[in-house]
Design a protein around this nucleic acid. Structure first.
Length: 826
DNA sequence: AGCACGCCGACT
DNA sequence: GTCGGCGTGCTC
């Protein structure tokens, strides 16, 4: 980091509006010291002080981003920019516009957008450390007991952070103490911004005199280890002039001390090089398979549609090979020297899709997702800035510094995980991609087998172009889908099992011919309720108003909302009875029961528990691909972005659960989930089978899934949306208020909604107690605003919400209520 | 969101 | 008496 420190000045002519990564509205004005005037460019980071500070240091250090500069005189005193941290801007001007749009549209601060957009390592903050004052030691100074402890620590390490001070004294509030020590002139204070990114350094070895091998061997003399190291070098260096030290030591079975000794003798030159942490791919553009006739048509249609429309929907049934179509459009863009962003829901970003694309595009591919380290993110950011052609990423990849982005693919556009729910910005990745396209001139391609209501509505109305892929690729036919009447079948066995005979039989038949099975159950853990059969009491979380789920592998009850864990109580908390039983079933129980029915089968389970570690997810997928697993049981995860060749049967254990959510999107979500998981069934030249167990077999969504009839589903659902004025016929904004005291949140919500109602009338609904009334010890209340589309009401409502938020937080007793706004909630 | 100040109850 | 919890206000 290039730093130019300057003394603060009192009067400035030039000012910079600086974005700080805080949940505070707006930017902050700083004075630009004369010496920095020529360097203040929007998009560069600056070092600034912000906030009060107990010891007269003028505030904590932050790294902010320059939004723009101006010379409007300031009536209030401003602080100076201390230094400029980047020689070149880290983001482009259009990205600042994108941030501003997001903050406005999703009603959050631009600082919160910055937090989401930037790799954590770009955000620096000051760490305050103390040192012993000059000439002071524990022998000479005037110390209290606690001060003496700190003094001793300072004599061992010459500087310690304030956090360390708390740790040494085992308490939080140390400010008074530090202040006194400063007054007594025992210590000095200093604050520094620490650069967080560190380049990965790898040691390389090369020969001092590569042309004189004989002489080199002579220099070694009789040393066995050094001879081995040199031989290893020769073997590894073919065609290269330097070899990684680690490779040599590994091959020769030695360590770096041998190499260092050889460097001293003048045999080797050791050199540290900065190296990329990013995976390197090698691929070939010819590794791409043939296009089917349908795919070719789709590509041609899209090419011509994109001449007229900026946004197009590729509506292709599962297995139709949408990816193959994307690849063709990516190739077009690459040929023109443009950049492409390929968005996927987080958990669909598997090795499967990365592997497939990297085999074709090789080094042009970069991947950006939540499991990357902060250092890796910085490196990818820089590569995109330098023009990396293709980025495969989750929604946060929208923030990368593209310079010639011309195509954004939003794959599985219907997927609810494109919406970020917490923390702010609560943005919809797909919708934001469309705005980003608008800003950059990039075309946007939405792809899915089950379009979201909003997207299909727009395609129908002609706002988006529409291209369909109706047939599956490679002679694979659509699976046969059947409903099993679980009520009738399970009654016979007294509801002891989750498995109907029909499903068990089908699993048996599938395994017998060597095909694989996927079973979908949208609930993790073993059993969702632990209940007393005498009085009906059940175990609830102490922090949240939810039942605790039993997890067999850890033999404990867990809260799926806050993570609280507890052992199993021996008796009922209400009546003392010991007759406690587990009710309901999750993936763990399904897996358990399967083991009893099919002791020979290899069973894998894919849910949050089993994919927690970094590589567990890809390992499970790999095992299933290699047929080390016969039956894969899982939650939503098994529905996303996976392609397997030998799945003969897909079973949906409990469709009723999907259809029962108290939410206007439940029908849409259930249809998408079932259609997507059904799409995993089917193999070459053979029809796959999908069995859906249902208690309520008459639900219309079921027959729409059975007939694979998206249009029927859409027409019915869109009528309901119109009738009840739900999106896409209206716009929703949800405000949630939280507080640990119910009476406080009640008061605040009432105040808030009264204010809003005065301005927006009956567009305001609530406050209402949400489905789960308390989470993490906070009581919740929801206020929903339902707005007619295409009207000035949206901006009016957003302004009203801002005002209501400010006023509520100023209201007596309501200052500690948390208020969050969610625009277009999911 | 932090962070410090100031006002209260609970302990040495 | 002091510690520390919590409510309040402020940050360019």
């Amino acid at each position: 980091v290039e730093k130019k420190k300057l003394h603060p000045e009192n009067h400035f002519v030039n000012f910079a509006e600086v974005i700080l990564p805080l949940a505070l509205r707006g930017t902050f004005t700083y004075g630009v010291p004369a010496a920095l005037v020529n360097e203040v460019t929007p998009g560069k980071r600056v070092e600034v002080r912000f906030g009060r500070d107990f010891a007269d240091t003028g505030g904590n250090l932050y790294s902010g981003i320059i939004a723009h500069t101006h010379n409007q005189p300031q009536s209030n005193p401003v602080k100076p920019i201390i230094s400029i941290l980047d020689p070149q801007p880290l983001i482009h001007p259009f990205q600042l516009q994108f941030w501003e749009w997001m903050a406005n549209y999703y009603s959050c601060s631009i600082g919160e957008v910055m937090n989401a957009a930037f790799p954590a390592h770009f955000k620096l903050s000051g760490e305050t450390v103390i040192t012993l004052a000059e000439g002071i030691s524990t022998l000479t100074g005037d110390w209290t007991d606690e001060e003496y402890l700190i003094g001793e620590a300072l004599e061992i390490r010459n500087e310690i952070s304030l956090d360390d001070v708390s740790r040494i004294l085992q308490r939080n509030s140390i400010y008074g103490l530090i202040k006194k020590m400063l007054e007594k002139q025992l210590i000095f204070l200093k604050t520094d911004l620490k650069e967080k990114y560190t380049a990965k350094v790898v040691m390389y070895v090369s020969l001092t005199k590569p042309e004189l091998l004989e002489e080199t061997f002579e220099k070694i003399g009789k040393s066995q280890r050094q001879t081995e190291a040199l031989l290893a070098y020769i073997q590894l260096s073919k065609g290269k002039n330097a070899v990684k030290a680690s490779e040599i030591t590994k091959l020769a079975g030695t360590d770096s001390s041998v190499l260092k000794a050889m460097e001293k003798k003048g045999i080797f030159i050791l050199e540290s090089r900065e190296t990329s942490r990013l995976e390197s791919y090698s691929g070939n553009i010819d590794n791409v398979g043939e296009l089917s006739v349908d795919q070719k048509d789709a590509v041609d249609n899209l090419r011509s549609l994109f001449l007229q429309k900026n946004i197009n929907l590729l509506f292709g049934v599962t297995g139709s090979g949408k990816t193959r179509v994307y690849i063709e459009l990516i190739k077009d863009a690459i040929r023109r020297g443009e950049q492409v962003l390929y968005l996927l829901p987080e958990i669909a970003l598997t090795t499967q899709i990365t592997g497939r694309l990297s085999k074709i595009f090789g080094q042009e591919i970069g991947v950006y997702h939540s499991k990357m380290s902060n250092n890796e993110r910085v490196e990818l950011w820089n590569e995109v800035m330098e023009g990396k052609s293709i980025v495969l990423g989750a929604r946060s990849a929208l923030f990368l510094p593209f310079s010639k982005l011309k195509l954004i693919i939003v794959d599985e556009e219907h997927d609810a995980s494109y919406k970020q729910n917490d923390p702010a910005p609560r943005y919809q990745g797909r919708d934001s991609a469309i705005y980003l396209g608008h800003l950059t001139g990039a075309k946007v391609l939405l792809g899915t087998a089950t379009p979201s209501m909003e997207t299909f509505f727009n395609a129908r109305s002609g706002k988006y172009g529409l291209v369909s892929l109706g047939n599956r690729f490679g002679g694979v036919s659509m699976p046969k889908i059947e409903i099993i009447d679980a009520k009738r079948e399970l009654k016979k066995s007294g509801y002891k099992s989750q498995f109907t005979d029909s499903l068990l039989e089908a699993i048996q038949n599938t395994l017998q011919i060597g095909d694989q099975v996927i079973l979908f159950q949208n609930r993790r853990g073993f059993a969702p309720t632990y209940r007393c059969i005498d009085c009906g009491w059940h175990v609830e979380c102490i922090h949240c108003d939810v039942s605790l789920t039993y997890h067999k592998y850890s033999n404990e009850l867990k809260c799926h909302y806050c993570g609280y864990k507890s052992g199993l109580p021996q008796k009922c908390g209400q009546c003392g009875s010991k007759a406690l039983i587990l009710i309901g079933f999750g993936t763990e129980k399904i897996e358990d029961e399967l083991k009893i029915h099919f002791p020979e089968a290899k069973i894998g389970r894919m849910d949050l528990e089993t994919v927690r570690t970094k590589h567990a997810h890809s390992r499970l997928i790999g095992d299933f691909e290699e047929k080390k697993i016969d039956i894969l049981v899982g939650t939503q995860m098994v529905t996303k972005g996976l392609d397997f060749e030998d799945v003969g049967l897909v079973g949906i254990i409990s469709s009723d659960q999907l259809l029962q959510y108290p939410d206007f999107r439940s029908g849409e979500r259930a249809f998408q989930l079932m259609a997507q998981v059904a799409g995993r069934a089917g193999r070459k030249n053979k029809q796959g089978l999908v069995l859906i167990q249902a208690f309520n077999i008459s639900h219309p969504v079921l027959s729409e899934v059975v007939n694979n009839d998206y249009e029927a589903f859409y027409s019915r659902e869109i009528m309901e949306r119109q009738m009840f004025k739900y999106p896409p016929y209206s716009r929703l904004i949800k405000i949630t208020l939280k507080h640990k005291k119910p009476e406080v949140v009640n008061k605040a919500a009432l105040f808030f909604s009264n204010y809003l109602r005065k301005l927006l009338g009956n567009r305001v609904i609530g406050p209402a107690v949400p489905y789960i009334a308390r989470v993490r010890s906070l009581y919740l209340l929801d206020i929903i605003i339902k707005l007619e589309k295409d009207s000035g009401w949206i901006n009016k409502a957003k302004q009203a919400i801002k005002d209501a938020t400010d006023l509520t937080l100023r209201e007596q007793g309501c200052t500690t209520v948390r208020i969050m706004t969610d625009v277009d909630p999911y």
